[in-house]
Amino acid sequence: MPSQEMPPDDFVAVIRRDGPGAGELLWMKDDRTYCSAIVREGQAGIECGSLADSRPREGVLKVTRGEPYQQKPGEQPDLFVFLAIVEGEHGPYAYKGAKPEAAGPIHDAVLTFASGRKVGLISYEKHSRQIPESEICGADGAVCFPAYYPSR
């Protein structure tokens, strides 16, 4: 299991930076292990794991479960942040068809390994537990995946 400490900035891909206390970061120690940090109000939720040998869908390496964030302790969360890791560079990404009303914007970045292999990193959010299922696709249409169903 990778270390849960943040590496130096040179090794971190910033998917989204939203003000001084919010954003999504991802780093990969090698091409199989990853750590992600979702930062809100200066607090980082860090999750590390290994990519599965089998892919949930063509080109898709990982889709995380929606990480809930509460505005105030004891309240129901009103923001769920998802991250996806895909093989290659297919961005920019967008919702297939109309963007669901409670869905937030999609942000993406590309991580390039020394070998030349590229991995697309995607972050997106929803602002409600109840939201119609939708797909997210790359600009070339080669990679599409269900937005709100995590891979195992």
Rank of each mutant, 00 (worst) to 15 (best):
M1A: 12
P2R: 06
Q4I: 11
E5N: 11
M6H: 08
P7W: 02
V12T: 09
V14R: 12
V14C: 01
I15S: 04
I15P: 04
D18Q: 14
D18K: 13
E24F: 05
L25R: 13
L26I: 15
L26C: 11
L26V: 14
W27F: 04
R32Y: 07
R32D: 08
Y34M: 06
Y34N: 02
Y34P: 01
C35G: 04
A37Y: 07
A37W: 08
G45D: 12
I46V: 15
C48M: 13
S54V: 13
S54D: 15
P56M: 07
P56D: 09
R57C: 02
E58R: 14
G59S: 03
V60N: 10
K62S: 05
R65A: 14
E67T: 04
P68Q: 07
Y69N: 00
K72W: 09
D78I: 07
L79A: 05
V81T: 14
F82M: 00
F82L: 01
F82K: 02
A84C: 03
I85E: 07
E87Y: 00
P92N: 11
Y93S: 04
Y95C: 02
Y95V: 02
K96T: 07
A98R: 13
A98H: 03
P100W: 13
E101L: 11
E101T: 05
A103G: 00
A103F: 02
A103N: 02
G104T: 10
I106Q: 08
I106C: 10
D108N: 15
A109F: 06
V110H: 13
T112H: 09
K118Q: 15
V119Y: 12
V119F: 12
G120W: 11
G120H: 09
Y124N: 05
K126M: 02
S128T: 04
I131M: 11
P132N: 08
P132I: 00
E133D: 15
S134N: 12
E135G: 08
C137T: 09
D140T: 07
D140G: 10
V143H: 04
Y149H: 11
S151M: 07
R152Y: 14
R152F: 13
